[in-house]
């Protein structure tokens, strides 16, 4: 009885949060910032790449890609350490 009540409460709170999120969503095709418009207008001229995603990933946000590559490197190091005791 008590457990059912808490499950119901969690569902209601979750439903309220999701309803508020859906109600406050901005209209389709009208982004709230001007940064994406800047990338679409100037990305090809500034980076020479047709692919806007690549121009962002490897040029505007290159530091983020460096972090991703480092994470992969660290994962390989961890696997090596995991199997270091086997010969």
């Amino acid at each position: 009885m008590n457990g059912e009540f808490y499950k119901m409460l969690v569902c209601m709170v979750l439903f309220a949060f999701l309803s508020a999120a859906v109600a406050s969503i901005h209209p389709f095709g009208e982004p709230p910032s001007e940064m994406d418009d800047y990338f679409i207008r100037n990305g090809q001229r500034e980076t020479g790449a047709n692919n806007i995603v690549t121009s962002i990933v490897f040029d505007y946000r290159g530091l983020d890609t460096l972090g991703e590559a480092s994470v992969l490197f660290t994962a390989v190091t961890g696997v090596f350490m995991l199997f270091a005791g086997r010969k």
Binding site: G48, A49, T54, S55
Partner: peptide, 13 residues
């Protein structure tokens, strides 16, 4: 033959 340093970085990654 465009993209500047992006193809080289793609190759490295």
């Amino acid at each position: 033959n465009t993209g500047g340093v992006i193809p080289l970085m793609n190759l490295a990654v």
